[in-house]
Write a protein that binds this DNA or RNA. Sequence first.
DNA 1: AGTGATACTGTGTGCGCACACGCAAAAATA
DNA 2: TATTTTTGCGTGTGCGCACACAGTATCACT
Lengths: 361, 361
Amino acid sequence: MTNKRIRIKDIAEKAGVSTGTVDRVLHDRGNVSPDVKQLVLNVMDELGYERNIIASTLAYNRTWRIATLMPEFHTDPYWEQPNAGIDRAMKALRHYGVVLEPHIFMLFDQNSFVQHAREILDNPPDAVLFAPVFLKESTLLLKACEEKGIPNVMINTNIENAKSLSYIGQDSYQSGVLAGRLLHFGLNDGETALLLNLEIGSYNAKHLIDKEQGFRDYFARFPGQRIEIVKRDFEDFDNKNKLTAFLNELFKGHPRLNGIFFTNSRAYKAVDCLPEKIVQKIKIVGFDLVEPNLVHLRNNNIDFLINQNPVQQGFLGVISLFNHLVKKQKIEPQQYLPLDIVVTENLDYYLRRQDELQLVV
Amino acid sequence: MTNKRIRIKDIAEKAGVSTGTVDRVLHDRGNVSPDVKQLVLNVMDELGYERNIIASTLAYNRTWRIATLMPEFHTDPYWEQPNAGIDRAMKALRHYGVVLEPHIFMLFDQNSFVQHAREILDNPPDAVLFAPVFLKESTLLLKACEEKGIPNVMINTNIENAKSLSYIGQDSYQSGVLAGRLLHFGLNDGETALLLNLEIGSYNAKHLIDKEQGFRDYFARFPGQRIEIVKRDFEDFDNKNKLTAFLNELFKGHPRLNGIFFTNSRAYKAVDCLPEKIVQKIKIVGFDLVEPNLVHLRNNNIDFLINQNPVQQGFLGVISLFNHLVKKQKIEPQQYLPLDIVVTENLDYYLRRQDELQLVV
DNA sequence: AGTGATACTGTGTGCGCACACGCAAAAATA
DNA sequence: TATTTTTGCGTGTGCGCACACAGTATCACT
C-alpha cells in the first residue's frame, strides 16, 4: 500500500540533505552539485514523490492573472454559456490565487476586439483565454502573445497552425458529418438538403467551411442515393422580412427541399420565419441549446440539436490554463468536446448538467 | 472588485475578537456568547467570507476513508468504467487526505456481496460508495449504514426511498422513452419492436421495469400508429446455442420484427448470434460503450448506443462524498447523468472524454 | 471574602511547501 | 599567501487554518 504521503522532508531525510536542497532540485533552481542532484532525484523516484499542490499554493502566496476576451452576450444568447463556464471555473479556483480579468467585445465589431486586446497587452496577464471570432485580428493577438511569452487558449473557434497552448471546442468537420447522418434519417432518395449559414462575412468562417465539407462527405458515402445538397449564406438574419422572402424563394426553387442543416446556433431565426406546415414536414438539424432553439425542439419543429458544450468550453479553458500555470502540466493542443445529439427526450439532462460542473484540482 | 480574499484574521480584527473565537463560530463548537457569535456572523456575512479549503485541509491533517463496494469487472466489461472513474477521482483527491478502501464482489454472487459489506462495517469508514445490484442485500447494507451513521452514495442502480445521501446514475424511465424515440426512426406502421432483457433474475430489476414502461409510454403517444411491442427476458445469455435458438424462435413468431431494444449493455451478445442479413435490416438500440458493442456500432450492426456515463458515475460518486465530508456541501439526492446518444459519427469524442475527466475542488 | 465550577476567549503550534537569507567551503584571482 | 568571488547547502519564516491549551471573567455557594 502506497497510501503514505511522501513529503519533501521525507526525501531530504532519506537523501541526507536539507529540504532546501530538495526544493532546489524540485524547481531546478540550480546551485546543487550534479551528484547530490542525482541522488535526490533517485530518492524522489524511489519514494514516488508527488508535489502537494495544497501546501504549494499556500506557500506560493501569489496570484495568477488570467485575462479573458469574449463576446458580449446580449446580442447572441449563445455566448452566455462559455461565459458561464468561465465564471464557474474562476470561482472554484479563487483560493488557488487565480484572478480573472474579463474583457468583453462587441460581437460584430472588430475595432472593439482590437481595443480590448490592446488593453490586455498593455498590462500583460499571466495567461489569456479568448474566442478568436475575427480571423485577422485574432492572429495579431496571437502574435503579440507569442512575443511577450503569454500562454493562451482559444475556445469555440479554431485558428489552425496558431501557436496557442490549446484549442478547446468542437471538431467542425465531424459535426458536419454528424449533421449529415442525422438529417439522413428523414430524407428519401431524390430529395434536397439545404445547408444554411446564417452568418456575417467578417466572421472567422473556416469552421463553416469545415462543417460543409463534413456534411457533403457524409452524403458522398452513398453514391447510389441521389440527395441534392444546396448551400446558401445569408447575412441579414435579423431582418425578418428579408429572411422570410429569402426562404420562400428557396422553397420555390427547390420543391423537394425536405431538410435543413443550420451551421450555427441561429436555426430558430429561420424557423420563426417558416410556416408551421412546412416546419412540421421538413427535418431540421441545428446547433446549441439556446432558449429560442429549445422552444422549437420541444415543439418538434427542430428535430436535432447538436450541443457543442459551450459551458464546458469556457470551463475547460480556464482549467487548462490553471493546469499549465500552476500545476505545470502538459496541455493537449486540441481538446475536442463531445458532439452531443440532443432531442426532446434527453434535453433536460444536458441543461441540468450545465449548472453542476464538478471540479477538483 | 471583491477580489480581496478574506481571512479568518480579517474577520477577527473587524469584529474585535480573536481568531480562536471566529474559528469557534465557524465550526459551531459552542463556548461563544450569543451576542459575540451574532457579531462575528454579521462580519463574516458583510465581508463575504469563504472558507479556504486549501489551508483548511492542510491544517486538518486528517484522512477520510471511503470504502467502495463494486462488482468485479472481468466478468462484465461494463464495470471497468465506474471503477475507472473512482480511480481517477481518488488520485485527484489524495492530497486532500482521501483514502480509498476498495472492495470487489462477484457479479452474480450475493454471498460475496454480503461478505464484503460485513468487512466494511467491521471497520467503519467515513463513507461508503457502492452499486446496489442486489436489492435485498443492499437494503441491509443501507440499514446498517444508517444505524452507524455512515454516509453513503449509490451509483448505477437505484433503490427508491433509500436513506442514502445520493443516487448517481441514469433516469431509467426516461432512457426507455429515449430508446423508443430512437427505434421509432426506423420503424414503420404495422411492424414489431422487441424489448429484450438479457439479465439474471437475482438482479435488482426495478430499473428494467422502468425502462420498459418508458419505452411503452413513448409508443403510446402515437395511437394512430400500430407498432406491436414484444417483451422478453432471457437469462442464459452466455450460452450461444440457446441464445441463438431463442432468437430464431422469436423471429419466426414475429415476421415483422424490425427493431430491438436491449435494456442493458449486452446487446453484442445477441447481435453475435444473429445472421448478418437480419442484423443489417433491423434497427438496434442498446446501452453502453463497451468494446464488443463498439465493434457492432462501427459496422452499423447496432444503430444507437445510449451512454449512461459509467465513468462519470464513479467519478461523481467519490466527488459527492468528498463534497459532503470535507466541503460540507449539500448533495443532490438524485444526480441524473445525461443520456448520450452515440452513433458512429460521434463515438470517438465520448471515448476520449473518459480519459480526460477534469477535476478541481 | 474565599473557593471552585463554569462560561467564554486568546495564544501557540504545526500542517507541507516556497523562498529569502546566511554561512561555509571551494575556486578564482590578486 | 591573502583576498575576493562563486558555488553549494542549511535555516528560518510565513501562507491560512484547526485545534490543543492556557488564560480570564463570571457566578454560585460557602
